[in-house]
Design a protein around this nucleic acid. Structure first.
Length: 270
DNA sequence: AATAACGTCAACCGCTCCGCA
DNA sequence: TTGCGGAGCGGTTGACGTTAT
């Protein structure tokens, strides 16, 4: 494919946009729309390439752009989305109304990456562990206890995740809850208090995009309101490093872990 | 007060994707 | 089916502002 000549060779302007150029671009798009970016600058009378115009419009001049600092909720959403999507900035932008891929990319590199790194360093020193029976069916020894390392509640809270609410005691949730972690980030959560008929709730990417925009409480109650066996896919999460076994069986305190897993949105990778 | 170091963010570059002829 | 060209994406750069020395 023959590459289009760069702006400079075409005698087109580069660098920061002036208010005058902005105004020309805004006026033109308001009147004519932006059907063909390549043709737009010539028709609008701008000495810029179409690419530059498109970028300026989508990242800065668009009327639905939300300017200003990112809220804590937005930052948490970006962290979750990044766990789920990786560096797919435009996909993240599609789930954060008013924010651009460029802006999200910048905030990730300048703030969030650092924040997460600090959290991981801090939680290293706050980690504590419990011992649970191994219940992985593929494991050679069923009775061998496995030590799992979890972050302390303080560590979790330092990342901005709320502690479990006191009215949700573990006994209200389940007597014995088994979380089986499967390859490809799948998990089966089995509540033995309920019958084990085949009721599966499969949670895919759209689940997260929908739930991220709703209240956490409804996310929790929706989740906990479903009886029987739940199967769902977790995106990777900041807590993944703390759960390092294929299966765990805990008869108390699962409300705490439900809360963490759901809010953090993930289980370990394998 | 000067300047070096660091942080932020708008803009660019080069590549891939996708629709269309 | 293939090739072209426009649009979009992610990585990177560099100008500018702020903070530290």
């Amino acid at each position: 494919m023959v590459r289009a000549p760069c702006c400079e060779k075409m005698g087109l302007k580069k660098g920061p946009w002036t208010p005058e150029e902005d105004q020309i671009l805004i006026s033109y798009i308001q009147q004519h729309g932006h059907g063909n970016w390549r043709a737009l600058p010539k028709q609008a009378g701008l000495l810029r390439c179409g690419k530059s115009c498109r970028l300026r419009w989508t990242n800065y001049l668009r009327p639905d752009i939300k300017r200003g600092n990112f809220s804590k909720e937005e930052e948490e959403t970006i962290i979750k989305l990044h766990e789920m999507l990786g560096n797919r900035w435009s996909a993240m932008a599609a789930r954060l109304p008013g924010r651009t891929d460029n802006e999200i990319k910048n905030v990730w590199h300048t703030h969030l990456k650092k924040k997460l790194k600090n959290y991981q360093t801090t939680s290293e020193t706050q980690r504590h562990s419990i011992t649970v029976p191994k219940s992985d069916s593929n494991a050679p020894s069923q009775s061998e206890p496995v030590e799992l390392n979890f972050p302390s509640q303080q560590g979790i809270e330092s990342l901005g995740y709320a502690p479990v609410s006191p009215q949700q005691s573990s006994s209200e949730l389940s007597s014995v809850t088994e979380v089986s972690l499967l390859p490809n980030n799948m998990a089966i959560i089995k509540d033995e208090k309920q019958d084990t008929s085949e009721t599966f709730l499969e949670i895919d990417e759209s689940f997260w995009s929908e739930q991220l925009s709703s209240e956490n409480s409804s996310l929790q109650s929706d989740f906990l309101g479903v009886n029987h066996e739940l199967q769902f896919q977790f995106p990777l999460s900041p807590v993944r490093e703390y759960v390092n076994e294929y299966s765990l069986n805990i008869d108390h305190g699962m409300d705490y872990w439900y809360n963490i897993f759901i809010k953090a949105g993930g289980l370990p990778e394998f």
